[in-house]
Design a protein around this nucleic acid. Structure first.
Lengths: 413, 413
DNA sequence: GTCAAATAATTCAACCACTGAACAAATAGT
DNA sequence: ACTATTTGTTCAGTGGTTGAATTATTTGAC
């Protein structure tokens, strides 16, 4: 988990200045919609052209950026040399363990997915050590593929559908049946996940919903940098992104929206409370209400089955989705009132169901959110599919390098 | 509203280095439990003693810190000269308009309240311009008093029980009867609130609950730097403090916990929704349930009256408080599940009622919060009294100077 | 009473990184 | 070919940190 602020609150030594400016320039290159020239960067950052040149020199040497052919420009003057994020520099390795699949992917600095593997398997009966072993094998293959493409894997992040510790201990992953699983220790034997690069931890473990939100952050339309991302799976998790940064809570356990009460005296929940959202908008509840209780569908196809039925006009399914959307809307309205967010993303299993969920969610928001009159809340489906968490995990590694390029550069000198 | 991050994401020029270290050293002086020496600061910040000396020199010249007699120390060696925040430097002016009082206070760099005035008056029938005029008169007196004590008022913050714009426009303050009141424009004629100091805006307007949370942040026990502060007044507002920083939401309208649904099909609320927390734990609801519906008590004495009755064992009051606490607990459980906070502070009118509210709130939390088993949630009363918002407002000005001393120093050179 | 040990704070040359201005490079238009 | 224009680099100047040496001020031992 990223405990580091954008700027460490330590001593500002001389080198900090360069480190700050490396991150600044690199960030502008990443954000730009077309390859900027050094002069563009100088104008946009406020640095002098001389400084930008020196900084870019470092970035080029460290293979973080590359020069491209200048975009033909009207008017006189020496043609600019465009700068882009390197396609052959460091890359992030993203891993995911979920109820019925393992996934691994590699994302480069520019956010492109350069490798992607999914292995379907019911992992509930598999012991954690074995599941992680299989994952490590996939990771080794992914590293090799990345290396073939000229990329240097610089760190990995693992998404787990459960509560994760600072140290990577999985305290509880109910749907997977895991409890107190020391993931880093179990993966320590696998070299694919322990190679260390300065400035980037070899492996971080985090909640699936958190990483899916991060995936959405840099896959989704840029601009909306504050949103609530809801992953509707067997359980319901949420990732909260504020100003382009994931909010993790005091211990990293934020986002348990599935247990927000929506009917305080309602159905009992396995968490011990009553009337939790999960009991009204979780997969089991929706399937039961739609009359598919015994179907025992794999978790990630259930949503598509529901969407099919809804498209066909099945009354029970439509009613079930309406009720789930209303429950979701009640919880979301509370969140929006509390946090003042302007965008809600329906992700995971909710994404294909968005056409039927959005109207009741919006209805609840518009009734219940005090400030909805001044500025409306957008509800939209996630742009990434089921692999949002793995891609988000890989992206989190990449983001870390972009945010603090100093470590990577020091490592390569 | 503080839009600026701790470190602006602009170009890191040469001067930025000094600015960063000024803030770093000043922060350590502020946090220390006893006056640190330059050598202590060097050890704690990682800077060299030479740099610390130079930085401290600047701070002394700018009247931000002062030297004090060394604390007698065992062992040999030249005695250290202790450094403390100056008691005669800049100060923050805190203002509050509420339903039945106006308040003004002055807080110095060390957080001490150096001036404090409250003017009781029912402000609902008073036009905003007149209310603000009276406030400005109090502010002028406070400035004069501060100047007599050697302080330089360096900026002001105003707390309002309502939704405030980035520009200081009060969009809606329902209990005060304000709507679209352009506070800065109305106060522009009053010199006490428009004198400008570099790096500190002359007047910021913010929500009362937000500023009360900030007040609690630096009055409360240090260490708990992430908490939810709930101001139970006529309405119910919350301030969310994360890692020592107030979280304001996308538009600065976070904290509307009063309209979080706790009984989705319950009592209609004036916000247009149903079953909002305010209808179950707001002052009116509690007074009605306790049988004091018509009493028409001033808002800030209602809580004390209820506490009296509860202490005397009045059955209706005890039941009313239990029910309010349960509703509050439902809402708070949702918030804690979502944000993973470990501390909840009962402030405003809830503070004196804490003995009766805490048990039901804790009961709901322990039932409903998934992670409560691993790490308990603390529920405690606010340490600041009814003046939390005014003190917090003044404190926010001071914090801004401490966080970016560069502006103040430039202004004084 | 004097001297050694210890700790605090300052001084100073060296160095790092940014600035501003001058200059070299490369193109379009006339 | 020549000028205008824009890009990118070079270089002396400067602000700020570093590290080591120096000065300052105390305690404790002989």
């Amino acid at each position: 988990m990223s405990r580091t602020a954008a700027v460490p609150v330590g001593a500002a030594r001389q080198g900090s200045l360069r480190e700050l400016n490396l991150a600044l320039v690199l960030g502008r290159i990443a954000d730009a919609d077309r390859p900027p020239s050094r002069a563009d960067l100088a104008a946009r950052t406020g640095l002098t052209r001389a400084t930008v040149s020196a900084v870019v020199e470092d970035l080029l040497l460290g293979r973080l950026v590359a020069e491209v052919e200048p975009a033909p420009r009207a008017g006189a003057g020496r043609p600019a040399r465009g700068l882009v994020l390197a396609g052959d520099g460091p890359a992030g390795l993203g891993l995911e363990v979920n109820v019925d699949y393992l996934a691994v992917c590699v994302v480069d600095l520019a956010g492109r997915v350069r490798h992607h593997t999914v292995e379907r398997a019911d992992l509930r009966p598999v012991p954690p050590a074995e599941a992680l072993g299989r994952l490590a094998a996939l990771a080794a293959a992914a590293r090799a593929d990345a290396a073939d493409q000229g990329l240097t894997p610089a760190g990995a992040a693992l998404a787990v559908p459960g509560l994760v510790d600072d140290a990577g201990l999985v305290r509880l992953a109910p749907n997977l049946g895991w409890r107190d699983v020391p993931v880093p220790a179990l993966l320590a034997r696998h070299p694919a996940l322990t190679e260390h690069v300065d400035g980037v931890p070899p492996l971080v473990v985090d909640n699936e919903a958190n990483l899916a939100a991060l995936g959405e952050l840099h896959a989704g339309p840029s601009g909306a940098a504050s949103f609530l991302h809801i992953s509707g799976e067997v359980g319901i998790g949420a990732g909260i992104v504020l100003d382009g940064r994931l909010f993790r809570g005091v211990r990293g356990w934020s986002g348990e929206i599935g247990h927000v009460p929506v009917r305080p005296d309602g159905r009992p929940c396995r968490c011990g409370g009553r009337g939790c959202l999960e009991r009204y908008a979780g997969q089991e509840a929706v399937l039961a209400a739609a009359g598919l209780a015994g179907a025992d569908l794999p978790a990630d196809t259930a949503a598509y089955r529901l969407a099919e039925l809804a498209r066909a006009g099945d009354a029970a399914t439509l009613a079930a989705l309406h009720d789930a959307g209303t429950a979701l809307g009640v919880a979301v309205a509370g969140v929006v009132n509390l946090l003042d967010l302007d965008t809600v993303v329906l992700g995971g299993g909710y994404a294909p169901l968005e056409p039927w969920l959005r109207p009741p969610v919006l209805a609840e928001i518009s009734h219940r959110v005090l400030t909805a009159a001044w500025s409306p809340v957008t509800v939209r489906p996630a742009t990434l599919g089921t692999q949002a968490a793995a891609v988000g995990a890989a992206g989190s590694v990449v983001r870390r390098i972009l945010a603090r390029p100093g470590g990577w550069l020091a490592h390569r000198s």
